[in-house]
C-alpha cells in the first residue's frame, strides 16, 4: 500500500524551539496523500507544536524558531519564496475549540474565498459556500439559517462550520488539533464520520488525546514523546504490535 500513495508533506530533521526550550527534536515524518495521519502522545510531547509548524501558525508565537525542512509537494514551506497566506489556503486548520468568525454562517465560509479572489461573482461565491457546507455535512442543517451568526449554532455544528470554512479554500491538507475534545459523543461521532469521508479528497493530520479515536480514524499513527517522534507506521501495526516499549506503554495506559 505504501508504494501506491504519494508523499504529500515530507518532514526532515524538524526541530522547534521556544526561545531556549526545545519542543521538537529532529522529527522525520512523511504524510501521505488521501490518508489520515493521527498524532498521539502525552501532554507536552510536541504534537501540537509539530502540527502548527505544518502551516506556519507558529510564526505567530514570538520567539519560536523552526529548523529542518518541511516540504509540501517538494516545496520548502519555510523557504524564501513561500507566501504564507497562500500556504494557509493549501494547508487548512481546524482548532480544538470551535472558533467561527463573528459573522453570519454564510460569511464564515465565504470570507476565505473572497479575500483570495476565488469567486468572480456572487453566485460563484454562493456555489462555493454550498459545496463546502455539503462536504462538511452541514448544508441541510443550516441552509435556512445562512444569515444567522455563526455563534448561534451548536458546538458540533460550529466545528463543522469551521471545517467547511477550511474546505472552502480547496486545500490539499487539513490539519486538526483535537477537533472533538470540546464536543459531546454524538457530535464527536459525526466529526469522525466526516473525517472518514474527507479522506477521499484531502490529506488529514489529526492530533488527538484519545487512543481509541486515533485507532478508529487513522491510516497511520505517529507517537510523540518529549519532543521526539518515537514511532510511526500503519495503525494496525502500531496498535497490535508496536516496536517501541514507550509506544506500547502509552497505548495500553501503562505509561510510566
Amino acid at each position: 500500500m505504501e508504494g501506491l500513495s504519494r508523499i504529500k508533506v515530507e518532514c526532515r530533521g524538524v526541530s522547534a524551539f521556544y526561545g531556549e526550550t526545545q519542543a521538537l527534536n529532529e522529527v522525520n515524518l512523511s504524510i501521505y496523500d488521501h490518508e489520515v495521519m493521527a498524532l498521539i502522545g502525552p501532554s507536552g510531547c510536541g504534537k501540537s507544536t509539530f502540527l502548527r509548524s505544518l502551516n506556519r501558525m507558529n510564526d505567530l508565537v514570538s520567539g519560536c524558531r523552526i529548523e529542518g525542512e518541511i516540504s509540501l509537494d517538494g516545496e520548502d514551506i519555510y523557504g524564501r519564496g513561500m507566501d504564507v497566506t497562500r500556504l494557509r489556503t493549501r494547508v487548512g486548520m481546524v482548532f480544538q475549540k470551535p472558533n467561527p468568525f463573528s459573522k453570519s454562517v454564510f460569511e464564515n465560509v465565504a470570507y476565505g474565498p473572497r479575500i483570495h479572489g476565488m469567486a468572480s461573482n456572487r453566485s460563484e461565491l454562493e456555489g462555493i459556500v454550498e459545496t463546502s457546507l455539503r462536504r462538511a455535512s452541514l448544508w441541510e442543517e443550516v441552509k435556512d439559517r445562512m444569515k444567522q451568526p455563526g455563534s448561534s449554532l451548536s458546538g458540533g455544528q460550529q466545528q463543522r462550520l469551521c471545517i467547511a470554512r477550511a474546505i472552502a479554500l480547496n486545500p490539499e491538507v487539513i490539519l486538526m488539533d483535537e477537533p472533538c475534545s470540546a464536543l459531546d459523543p454524538i457530535a464527536t461521532a459525526r466529526i469522525e464520520e466526516l473525517i472518514a469521508e474527507l479522506r477521499g479528497s484531502y490529506s488529514l493530520v489529526v492530533v488527538t488525546h484519545s487512543i481509541q479515536q486515533a485507532a478508529r480514524i487513522s491510516d497511520r499513527v505517529a507517537f510523540f514523546h518529549l519532543g521526539k517522534l518515537v514511532e510511526d507506521g500503519l495503525t494496525g501495526d502500531i496498535y497490535n504490535d508496536p516496536k517501541d516499549d514507550r509506544t506500547l506503554g502509552y497505548i495500553t495506559g501503562r505509561f510510566g
Binding site: 502551516n55 505567530l60 497566506t85 487548512g92 486548520m93 482548532f95 467561527p100 479575500i115 477550511a166
Partner: peptide, 9 residues
Amino acid sequence: REAALSVGA
C-alpha cells in the same frame, strides 16, 4: 485572530 490567519488572511 488564529481563525482569520488560518484561512490565509
